[in-house]
Design a binder for these strands. Structure first.
Length: 492
RNA sequence: GGCGAGUUGGCGGAGUGGUUACGCAGCGGAUUGCAAAUCCGUGUACAGGAGUUCGAUUCUCCUACUCGCCUCCA
């Protein structure tokens, strides 16, 4: 079984051959921890979770290393701290915890170093400042980066504080690295003519980017050869990837919005510092998320977090299902309709597989689909066929492979069936003897009296409360959804 | 403006140089007092134009449209 993946670096679907099958290594850009993860943040997590699971399936749980960082030093975090009056550490700690909880809710496994050591596999940028500084020094020594003194007097107190230490920016020099732009399909000339040059005193070229920048007194800072300051964006991923995965590794993933400049810059830094041809063999990028056909944005009012959905009662499994129903390289549209369909499907699959022992062997078709550039929509359709054929064992294994939490560990999909005759109840929750059974009896009486108009009217009322009323071979039956509130019956 | 992705039946969404996607909805049937659920059955879909070909939804080119990224962003 050969996995094929679309490699952004070559723009082609290629067979995946690991550098070391004993330790397949993947790095995925993680969040900047300053706020709850929004729904779009969940997409790469779920996409690469599927890949992680597939790799573990193919190469073995103990032969895959997956690293996903937390960027806990960033100007957005500083801004959040300033406006809220909270400490940076408070914000990053809390947000990191939220992120772990929310991603667990959508079924994402935690990254790991060969199936273990989860903490190390989720490195915090602030724990790798020394590595970043070392890499920057290396880049300067090799002539790929240069320092530039900043001017003073344009800012407040902090300027004086830094002045004594003579802080300097350390820039990466783009034109020294000829392959710059290959990943994102741009040339340096194009990018420069594309105008918008970034601010940055002492830059030699508008495309050069900052590796290290001095901090004002209210910004977090670390001692460095260039005075007290903090790392620029990009360098943290290069430093952490090198420390944990080596100079060259197998797969680097992230959203396609990161392709430029973030990943382009990572490649430039890492390859120049490490003297390597490639940073990663495969670059994978997922497409963006939309909501009801439009870009999710605060200005459009369609912005929401994973936690918002969970709190609204959309189970994490449903979120996962909706994400998997669109291929990762296509824009995905989150709609209420899709969530509804996903919930219905999962409910029926969970009913079918509850308490069932999963079969030992995964469907070849399913593995085939996933191996073909993570064709999760096809994988789900195969699961549909398996479900229709009634092989609960196989379905369960397939669902596990795609990362759906086992039904035994969940309750949201459960229903309880209440029958009239023996007041037998299929679930473990209360029997609704007093709440529901009298209505079933009344319905039955009306029907036996052939007063169908009244019987139907009663049924409609009952169904408005969420119950499903039917007449089975064992008599009148009510299917009660999980979390049913009997007080809804009071007005009937 | 620069770069890129996409346009498949009512909706969502795979895939293929000639043959069934799959799901939801719809329709017909079984069943039902009627329904629900379930089961069975059912749909002359591939943006437009030109080209390559024995044959294209599938390859090439052009046009139109949609969308995303380029700014913090996954």
């Amino acid at each position: 079984m050969t996995i094929h993946l679309t490699n952004t670096a070559t723009r082609q679907k290629e067979p995946f051959v690991p550098l070391d099958p004993d330790n397949v290594r993947m790095y995925v850009c993680g969040p900047t921890v300053y706020d709850r993860a929004h729904l779009g943040n969940a997409r790469p997590v779920i996409v690469f979770d599927v890949l992680y699971r597939l790799l573990r399936h193919v190469y073995g749980v103990d032969h895959v290393t997956y690293v996903r960082n937390f960027t806990d030093v960033d100007d957005k975090i500083n801004a959040r701290a300033a406006e809220s009056g909270r400490s940076i550490g408070d914000i990053t700690d809390e947000t990191t915890q939220w992120y772990l909880e929310d991603m667990a809710a959508v079924g994402a496994l935690e990254p790991s170093i060969r199936g273990a050591n989860h903490d190390k596999a989720m490195p915090r940028a602030t724990a790798y400042i020394a590595e970043m500084i070392a890499m920057i020094e290396d880049l300067i020594a090799k002539g790929f980066a240069y320092t530039a003194p900043i001017s003073f007097g344009h800012n407040s107190k902090a300027v004086y504080f830094n002045a004594e230490k003579a802080p300097e920016h350390a820039f990466f020099e783009v034109e020294k690295y000829s392959r710059y732009g290959v990943l994102s399909g741009r040339t340096v000339d194009e990018m420069i003519s594309g105008a918008r040059s970034e601010r940055g005193e002492g830059k030699r070229s508008p495309m050069d980017f900052v590796l290290w920048k001095p901090s004002t007194i209210d910004q977090p800072d670390w001692e460095s050869p260039w005075g007290r300051g903090r790392p620029g964006w990009h360098i943290e991923c290069s430093a952490m990837a090198k420390s944990l995965l080596g100079s060259t590794f197998d797969i680097h993933g992230g959203g396609n919005d990161l392709m430029f400049p973030h990943h382009e810059n990572e490649i430039a830094q890492s390859c120049c510092a490490n003297g390597t041809e490639k940073m990663a063999n495969f670059w994978l990028h997922n497409e963006m998320l939309q909501v009801e056909g439009k870009k999710m944005s605060k200005s459009l009012g369609n912005f929401f977090t994973v936690r918002d959905l969970l709190d609204q009662g959309v189970p994490g499994e449903v979120i996962r299902f909706v994400f998997l129903s669109t291929h990762y390289r296509k824009p995905m549209d989150w709609t209420a309709e899709k969530a509804r369909e996903a919930k219905d499907t999962l409910q029926s699959w969970y009913n079918l597989t509850d308490g069932v022992q999963s079969s030992g062997k995964a469907s070849f078709q399913l593995i085939d689909a996933l191996s073909d550039d993570l064709n999760t929509p096809l994988a789900l359709s195969i699961l549909h066929e398996i479900a229709r054929s009634g092989s609960a064992k196989e379905l369960k294994l397939g669902m596990q492979l795609l990362g759906f939490t086992n039904p035994e560990q969940l309750d949201w999909w459960r229903t309880e069936t209440v029958f009239l005759p023996g007041t037998f109840s299929s679930g473990s929750t209360p029997l609704y003897l007093n709440e529901i059974v009298p209505f079933l009896r009344k319905w039955q009486d009306l029907r036996l009296a052939k007063d169908y108009v009244a019987a139907d009217a009663l049924k409609v009322k009952l169904e408005k409360t969420g119950l499903r009323i039917s007449n089975s071979t064992s008599g009148p039956t009510a299917v009660v959804p999980y979390g049913f509130d009997p007080s809804k019956l009071e007005d009937i």
